[in-house]
Write a protein that binds this DNA or RNA. Structure first.
Lengths: 138, 138
DNA sequence: CCTGCTATTGTAAGTAGTTACAATAGCAAA
DNA sequence: TTTGCTATTGTAACTACTTACAATAGCAGG
């Protein structure tokens, strides 16, 4: 299932463990972003010995390796999801509704950004906060 | 010094306290954004009775009232600054360099955003993560 | 200048996330 | 299959931040 990922880790001198595999499995099954505590709760049901510390360490490790994505959502919370196609989050600060934006649309905005500021926007971690159409009415 | 702010709070049914005044003063003197812990350290030197809980509560209160601004910077940390002219943060995820972007430039981007997604981007809280020109070379 | 209402504070306990360190267990190589 | 190196884990203590509750203290009105 995750043979390619295991191969990648070995090439980089890292190891695959039941804990890491479980976190990947949980994120994959969820099909959406999860908070560390949600992941910990699910993980412990399957692998009771697993601790919070390991969950947090595993999440930052997998994220550094580019195998999962970390995204900041409202109130500074960090959530994780399986790395897939590039997309981004648009979060309503009033009702919390989240919407995904596809990468292609943002490309043109990034280009304008770069020519103006010199900064290259990190296309994997962008999250926008704003008001969704419904909440703009209030 | 903060007469206008005090007046505003009273009109809304809230009170001014030495603790709130001190947080405002510290942010104003700093002239840049500060983390809650930096504010707490400075505050306690002047008002030893002041506790962490009060600092955190004061920061979210002042922020809700629009008197200070909260901004997420790298690694999910929240920082605060005195509300002034609209501006935004652009943070390099490699070296941590921060740059301010003026509101006017972003206006045009927001407009494109809104017509595409229907979401109105929150112009006071936008923070971009990316790579600064220097770090792009590595 | 008092008085009373209640917003705000400090206290203390709780939750989320991080870190040093010694024990454990992947995995590469024999 | 066995062995040894060291990446990874669990433990336990620590930091940042939050919250319920009773005591305190702004401030509006008399």
């Amino acid at each position: 299932m995750f043979d390619q990922i295991i191969e990648t880790l070995h090439q980089r001198g890292f190891r695959m463990t039941p804990q890491r595999l479980l976190v990947l499995q949980i994120l994959k099954d969820a099909g959406r972003h999860l908070a560390p505590q949600e992941i910990f709760a699910q993980a412990q049901r399957i692998l009771p010995a697993m601790t919070e510390a390991t969950v947090y360490r595993t999440l930052s490790f997998l994220s550094e390796q580019g195998l999962i994505l970390a995204a900041h959502i409202g109130n500074g919370q960090l959530v994780y999801e399986i790395a897939g196609h590039d997309h981004h989050h648009l979060i309503c600060r009033a009702c919390g509704a989240t919407k995904q934006i596809d990468h292609q649309f943002l490309e043109s905005l990034y280009q304008q950004f770069r020519s103006k500021t010199g900064y290259q926007i990190d296309s994997l971690h962008v999250t926008f906060f704003g008001l969704c159409p419904d909440c703009q009415k209030n």
